[in-house]
Nucleic acid binder design. Structure first.
Length: 379
RNA sequence: ACCUCAAGACAUA
């Protein structure tokens, strides 16, 4: 069983999900680890349903199974389901807490992340890294620094992480060079740091020097090419990648969008195995600024029909589109839907876009759709 | 032999 399970995991790691499944089905004997490996494989290829049904078919669960299920939900944006799993599990390890913390950090739920971080019975460097990222994502660099400074235990990974997030790339590189052993997370972090600075050569150097790659590192490199105008290299890399997920697809999609290759973007989009809010939003924003705002509106509607919950970014995109095409009622409706239907808080961008939209149509802010509070904010 | 931290969309002139 052990060697078969190891093979199963190896197949999954290299993106051969079909091979893993075939092996799984023919295995004479399976244990919890075998099932867990399969569960994780499905989660990582963004197939939550398959992960869920694997979980439900398992003869028994251990802590790792629960954590893997929790993570599968978290990775695919099902925050509620992730939390429900967390509450349902019989015991929690630090991995469960970290997974929950990471889920909140990724979805921008800073308060929930802080709550989780303080409620945890103990914290390791992974918890600190996640918390620093949560603050940094929300542009609370001061707080990120504060956490970084108040940590009771530090190691090199956390230093690296902290420096990357506060934008001190030279210091980060210094730490990186001093690390006695670097894991793939550290390597990828360094790669992204260079990528963000536009140091394409340095990023490629890191990528080539890495002892192993996985979807995340491949995608980080893909993003480096795509966002620096090297769309052909990006495409080549994408085709070579042994494993792709929604993030990889969206990264390439964005590369096409940024380089004005609208046709290719559309074709690629419809070939995607799964779309999430970010992939849809990319399509919305591609068309939002052009004269074909109605196409953007169509994409937005299709996203809703797909059952996805729009983000503030996607709403802004569709509002910009409405503004350009003069769909005032429609645009106001999306704005109102933010708080009424989706539990989102409109930001300044949404208000100013709304004002421009009304202004263009010669309507006053007291158009009749808004209550006093909104009207006063608009004016 | 299996789980958590690292990768993707966004505004303004």
């Amino acid at each position: 069983v052990v060697s078969f399970t190891a093979m199963l995991g190896a197949y999954a790691h290299h993106g051969h999900l079909d091979a893993s499944m075939a092996l799984f089905n023919t295995m004479p004997e399976r244990n919890v680890v075998t099932w867990n490996t399969m569960l994780v494989a499905h989660g990582q290829s963004d197939d939550v349903d398959a992960a869920k049904s694997t979980f439900e078919s398992m003869p028994e669960w251990n802590l790792v199974s629960w954590n893997a299920m929790l993570q599968a939900y978290a990775e695919n944006g099902y925050l509620d389901a992730a939390h429900a799993t967390f509450t349902a599990m019989p015991v929690h390890s630090i991995v469960s807490w970290n997974a929950m913390l990471g889920a909140y950090a990724h979805s921008g739920c800073l308060d929930a992340a802080i709550y989780t971080f303080t409620a945890m019975p103990c914290r390791d460097t992974i918890s600190y890294n996640a918390m620093i990222a949560a603050y940094a994502n929300e542009a609370h660099i001061q707080e990120a620094r504060r956490i970084f400074n108040c940590m009771d235990e530090r190691n090199l990974v956390t230093w690296l992480h902290g420096y990357v997030h506060i934008g001190c790339i030279e210091k980060a590189k210094g730490i990186f060079d001093d690390m006695p052993s670097r894991n793939i997370v550290a390597w990828t972090e360094m790669l992204r740091a260079y990528s963000e600075e536009g140091h394409l050569g340095a990023a490629k150097g890191i990528f080539d020097a890495m002892p192993q790659h996985n979807v995340v590192s491949w995608t980080a490199m893909l993003h480096t090419y795509a966002s620096n105008g090297h769309i052909n290299k990006a495409k080549t890399l994408f085709d070579q990648m042994p494993q792709r997920n929604t993030v990889s697809w969206t990264t390439l999609l964005q590369g096409y969008a940024q380089n004005g290759h609208v046709r290719e973007a559309v074709t690629l989009f419809w070939r995607m195995p799964e779309m999430d809010v970010l992939s849809w939003t990319t399509m919305v924003t591609i068309f939002a600024h052009s004269g074909c705002g109605w196409i953007a509106v169509e994409f937005f509607r299709m996203m809703l029909l797909d059952g996805l919950k729009p983000s503030g970014v996607s709403i802004l995109g569709v509002m910009v589109a409405c503004k350009h095409v003069g769909l005032v009622r429609e645009g106001c409706g999306y704005f109102l839907g933010m708080s009424d239907d989706h539990g989102l808080v409109p930001h300044e961008e949404h208000y100013s876009c709304l004002v421009e939209m009304l202004d263009r149509a010669g309507k006053s802010p007291s158009y009749g759709l808004f209550d006093e509070a909104a009207t006063s904010k608009i004016s």
